[in-house]
Design a protein around this nucleic acid. Structure first.
Lengths: 253, 253
DNA sequence: ACAGTGGTTCCATATTATGGAACACTATCT
DNA sequence: AGATAGTGTTCCATAATATGGAACCACTGT
């Protein structure tokens, strides 16, 4: 009975059960899981015990399985974005309006950058919708900010070369980050995509921690290096104004 | 070389890797995982491929591992609470003020009820902090509401008997839910804890879907059945008033 | 009291996961 | 350029490990 070609029957079964538990609206009992996936009672029980021991699943009062603490904790870390979006959206709008270019808000999320809000400028040629896209740290203005201020760490492994101008050497990236910290803003020129330039500045939590970044990006013919520098300062000012407003803690759990 | 006493080496190793990936700030490469957990390269690679195939993990551009789509989707479903808390907090405050008793807000979350906000009344004897506590559907007023209006489904397995008065028979629970729908509110009397009574009413999304419930609870000597009925109506009114206010969509991603 | 359902533990069995070796690829150093 | 070190994947013989039937408890509801 060679079901799977590769040697991962146990892990495949465990994963299937785990995923089903996560996606199921009403927590399944061991017996149901056993029947649904045609895995013998005893095996099902053993797998679930293992997952439970690791904290990936948990039993509710009735013995049915729900997501475990490890996963709920993970979920919490993922979704602290909406507050930031709400707080910064007006800044994005104002920046997009005054510059005419596209404004973006990004946060560092588990290794990759997450773009969580965008306001388009009034030009026809401009950045397309980036929200949800995955963009590498080292080739974007937003990413350089997050790296420079410790909101993210330089990823392991190769630094992917996206264009001829992309920074792929670690020493060069480090010195670039140093200069970002000196200026207070970060720029890219053709490093992410040919003809695309951008400038970004940090968004801070009330305790000073950098938790995100805001950028303005557009085509290089329209934005000179001088423009970028000027816009960099404008972004910084705009964020400062917003952050002067005290915001009480919202929400409970 | 019998490492584990139970027969779950593969699952244990896979879980360990998965959890490490979720908790790691910077995504680990296969080689690092292999070294950290002293699992041979080949085995590590095979396990990671299996997890990737299932969508539990994903590779970033550099080949390092981050949480997969299944898990990020799960995270999204978990945290849509904060909006509701923000919208309903003032209602809780008003209810706690007018009744003097403790007000709670709950949502249905993956099988178990999640209490996400609470405002205490002015009595010294009252409900303690419930936020974060896990309370079964069938023995709480909030839970009965969520069940009655389809925001949650009756859990599989036994209905735990918490006190002598807890409803533990499924037919009885069904008829109770029927009567809840007739009245528009739900009550409990000594069913969750001896001497504790509560009344709850549904919170609806703009499309009419019930997504949560608000309750008032206190000691039975202070709240008669008549009081509960009256408060039930008050809660319903209060929620109606708030929900008349239109709320624009917030946030982007 | 008894049948029925659900869950866990046990243990002999062989299926399945294991890990060393060989291979392929890329960047860094000389 | 050529050499080297570090990484990731595939292959395959081996035995360690996961498997699942059966026995055993525990609990309801009839």
């Amino acid at each position: 009975m060679n079901h799977t070609l590769n040697g991962t029957q146990a892990i495949d079964r465990a994963s299937t059960l785990l995923i089903h538990i996560l996606e199921c609206a009403t927590p399944p009992l061991p017996s149901q899981l056993s029947r649904t996936f045609e895995i013998p009672k005893s095996t099902t029980s053993r797998i679930l015990s293992a997952l439970e021991r690791q904290g990936l699943v948990r039993r509710d009062r009735a013995g049915a399985f729900v997501a475990g603490d490890v996963l709920t904790a993970f979920a919490r870390t993922q979704n602290q974005d909406s507050v930031l979006v709400a707080r910064m959206h007006s800044a994005l709008e104002k920046l997009a309006h005054t510059t005419g270019e596209t404004a973006n808000l990004a946060v560092a999320s588990n290794g990759e950058m997450k773009l969580i809000d965008q306001v388009d400028g009034h030009y026809l040629l401009g950045a397309t919708n980036w929200v949800g896209k995955r963009i590498p740290y080292h080739a974007s203005a937003l990413g350089k900010i997050l790296l420079a201020y410790g909101a993210a760490t330089i990823p392991m492994g190769r630094l992917e070369k996206l264009t001829a101008k992309t920074i792929t050497s670690r020493p060069r990236l480090l010195s670039e980050l140093e200069s970002v910290r000196k200026k207070g803003y970060a720029t890219i020129t053709d490093e992410l995509e040919e003809g695309l330039v951008a400038v970004a500045a940090p968004v801070r939590e009330s305790d000073g921690r950098v938790v995100g970044a805001i950028s303005i990006s557009g085509p290089s013919p329209r934005l000179t290096q001088r423009d970028l520098a000027k816009i960099g300062e404008i972004i910084i000012d705009e964020i400062h104004i917003l952050q002067a407003i005290p915001d009480g803690k919202i929400g409970a759990a």
